[in-house]
Nucleic acid binder design. Sequence first.
RNA 1: GCCGAGGUGGUGAAAUGGUAGACACGCUUGCCUUAGGAGCAAGUACCGCAAGGUAUGCAGGUUCAAGUCCUGUCCUCGGCACCA
Length: 812
Amino acid sequence: MAKYNFKESEPRWQKFWQEQNLFQAEQTSTKPKKYILDMFPYPSGDGLHMGHVESYTATDIYSRYWRMKGFNVLHPQGWDAFGLPAENYAIKTGVHPSETTKKAIENFTRQINSLGFSYDWSRELNTSDPSYYKWTQWLFLQLYAAGLAYKKKAKVNWCDSCQTVLANEQAEGGVCDRCGSMVVQKDLEQWFFKISDFIEDQMVAGKTVKGLLSGLETVDWPESTKAAQRNWIGRSEGVEMDFTVDNSDQKIVVFTTRVDTIFGCTYVVLAPEHPLVSKLQIENSTEVAEYLATAKSKTELERMETKEKTGVLLQGVTARNPFTGVAVPVFVADYVLGGYGTGAVMAVPAHDQRDYEFAVKYDLPIVEVITSEKNIAVEAGQAFTDDGKLINSELYNGLHSAEARQKMATWLADNQKGRIKVNYKLRDWLISRQRYWGAPIPIIYCEFCGVVPVPEKDLPVTLPTDVDFKPTGESPLVNSEAFHTVICPLCGAPARRESDTMDTFVCSSWYYLRYADSENAEVFASPEALKQWLPVDVYLGGAEHSVLHLLYARFFTKALQKLGLVEFNEPFLMLRHQGIILGSDGNKMSKSKGNVVNPDEIAKVYGADALRLYEMFMGPLEDMKPWNTNGIVGISRFLDRMYRLAEKIDAKLTQTGGAKVQSLLHKTIKKVGEDIEQFKFNTAISALMILLNELEKEPVIATNDYRFLALMLSPLAPHLAEEMWQILAGEGSVTQATWPMADTAAMQDVEVTMVVQVGGKVRQTITVAAGLDQNAIMAIVMADEVVKKWVEGKEMVKIVFVPDKLINIVVK
RNA sequence: GCCGAGGUGGUGAAAUGGUAGACACGCUUGCCUUAGGAGCAAGUACCGCAAGGUAUGCAGGUUCAAGUCCUGUCCUCGGCACCA
C-alpha cells in the first residue's frame, strides 16, 4: 500500500467540499443551531500566522464535530478590513488601501482554504465594503437618535505620529497602541458612544436587563477576561461630601471610599484641572499659576513616572470638614487626577499612603483615627490603610470601619452634606478618528440647522476613491473638497460633511450580527435571521481583545437591545482564547527576532492535517506554547500509521481483537467526543494515538472498526479521514457522516488492574476479573507473597476498598 | 500595590482525592532495508547491587490515601495602576 500522499489528496478534497457546498448553514432547518465564530482577522500583508491557524483549527474541529452530531452549524468568516496599516502603507507608496486590502484578502482566503477550514463563505463580509459600512453608519444614526452617540469637547488622547485621537483603551500608559509614540492631551470636539450608560442593570420595556458588570456573571468566559473587564470598568463605592470654603459661596466636593477616616482629614487637595482653582480667591495666585503650567506641560507618562509628590498651598483658602466643622488648608497637586471622581480629595495622611508622603514633605499634621484590630505593627514611614476600629472620631469611636462608613453616609445624607456615590474608571467611548480608511461618520453640519444626521436614503456615505495619497502625513479626506461640500438635507443650504471616520472597533462591534443575514440590503439583519442564529454560541480569539473589542461588542449588543433591534443581552455565550504560539526560542514570534514560522511552509512539507493536528496536540488550547518543528514529525507518523492500518483490514472480520480492544475502542469514541466538546484537543488526539498503538498489535482489523477511526478523525484531520473513508468504499463523504455512538456495553471491562496498598503505600498490583467484591479481593491479596510480607505481624486496622480500582490495608 | 492564571522529567505535556510522568518529541541499544524527512523492537524521573527509598516551587495541615483539598510563603506570566 502506498504511503499517504497529502500533496495530492488535500487539494482534491478541498475542491470537493467547496463544490459540494458542504459547509453552508441551512437557512431553514429542524436541527438545533450552533453559531461558532472566530474573531475575524485584519487582512494584513503578512498573511496568516500560527495563531490564526491555532484558533481556526479549534473552531473547525468544533464545527465539523457538531455537524456530525446533527446540528445546523453557522461557521462564517470575514474581514476586519479598515485600519491604519493599509492607510499608512498608502501614504508611503501611493497604493490605495482598497487595493492592498483586496490582495491581502485573496492571500488569506487561499491560505485558509489550503488548511481545509470548513467556513460558510456564502456569508463572507468585509467591513470596508459599502454594503457593510452602510449598516455601520445606520447603526450610528440609531445610537445618535437615541442620545447614545454625542459630540462633546473633551480632553482627548492625541497621537501626533498617527495624526488622530485615540480611545482611552488605545492609549494605555500614555503611549499610542499603534505606533508606540507618546500621546498628548488635547481639547477637541469629538464623537462619543455612551458606554457608561450600560455599566449597571437597567429597565428596558419593563424588564430588567443586565449591564456590562452583572452580565459577565451570565456568560461562560475565562475568569481572567471577566476580571480584566471588571478591572477596566473600575467600579468603586463611596460617598461624595461637601467641604464649604470659608469666606466664599463655593464648596469643594470630594469623593472617598474611606469616609470612616474623615476625622483624620488634615487637608484637601484639588487636581490642577479642577475648575475651582481659577474661581477661588488665592493670595499666591502667581505661584499657583506657575504650578498649573508645569503640571500641564507634563505628559501622562511623566506625570506617572514622577514618584515625588508636588503641590502648592492655596494661601488664604480654607475648607470646613463637614463632620467636625474644623478648617483645613487646601492644596493643588497633580497626584490628584482631574478625570476621576470629583477631581478633589480629602487627605488623610495617617491612612492613605499618597497623602502620607505628601504630608511628610509639606510638614502637615498626621492624625490617626483607625487602629488595627489584628495587632499588626504599622511599618514606620507607612500609612495604615486597612480597615480597623475607629479612634479620635467622637461618637463614632469604637465602630468598625465598615459600620462607620454606613453610619457616616447616613449622617451626611440626613444633614445634606453628602451622598452615597458610585464611581467608575470607564469613560465613554471616543469613536471619531481623523483618518481616511474607516467608515465615514454620517453627519452633516449646517450653518442654520446645526448637526444634521444624513438621511437613511442617502446611506452609505461612501469614501471618495479619487483621492491623492501623497506622503503629506495627513489623511486625504481632509483635503477632499468633493467629499466635504454638501447640501443640508433639511434646508438645502450649503453645508459641510463630517470628515472624521469611525474607530475600526465600531465596525467589529456588530459584525457577528451581520453573518446571520449578510446579503440583506434592506436591514442590517432581519429579525428572523437574528432570532435563528444569535447569540453566538462559541466565540474564539486572542486574549489581547479582553477589554477593547469584547467590551465594545457587549456594549453594542446592550445598546441595540435597548433600541429594540435585538432580543438578547450578551453577544457571546461562551468565549475561549487561543494561547500565543511562541517561536522555538521561547520568544514571541517577530520578524526582528527572526523566529517566525510560516504556516504555508509547514503545510507544504507536512500537510495541512499534520499542521492542524500538531497545533492542537502541543498543549491546552489556552496555554502559551513554544513552536517546535521537530514535534510535528510525531503527528506525521501518526497520520501515516492510521492510513496504513488499512492494510490489515479483513472484510470477513466482524470485530477487531477481543473484549479488551473493543472496550478501548468504545471508551475512545466517548473520550474523543467529550474532549472535543471541551476544547481539550490535545488529549483527544492522544486518546486516538493510544487506540492506534493497540490496534497495530492486532493481526487483522475489522472494517467497521476502521470506519470508527475515519469518523473520529474527520473533524481533526479531515483530508486523511476522507481518504480512509474511500478505502472503506463508504457512502459519499465522511464529512457528512454521523458521529459514532459509543457502545456502553462494550466499554465494560472484563479484567481490571487493581492497586494494592498497605498503609497507604503501593505494594502490589493485581489483575483480576472486574466486579469482584471486597471479600474476594481480600482473599486474593492475602495470598500474595509481597502483600503478606508487608502485613505480617501487624494489626489490620481498616480496609479501604474501591471496587475495580484499589484496596488499601491499613495496619498498625 | 490590586485583580487573574500558573509552577510536574532533557522538551511539549497527562492525571473524577486512588499506580505521578499517559501521549508525543528527543535520546540509548538492537533489528530490517525497496537508504526513507523511513519502519520495527526494547529502554529512558532520581538514589541504590538489590530489597527498597525519594520525587509534582517551598513549609506546614486534613485524609487510609494529596500534583489534586486547606493555611502560609516564594517565584513566573497576563491585566490594571497616584482611581482617593
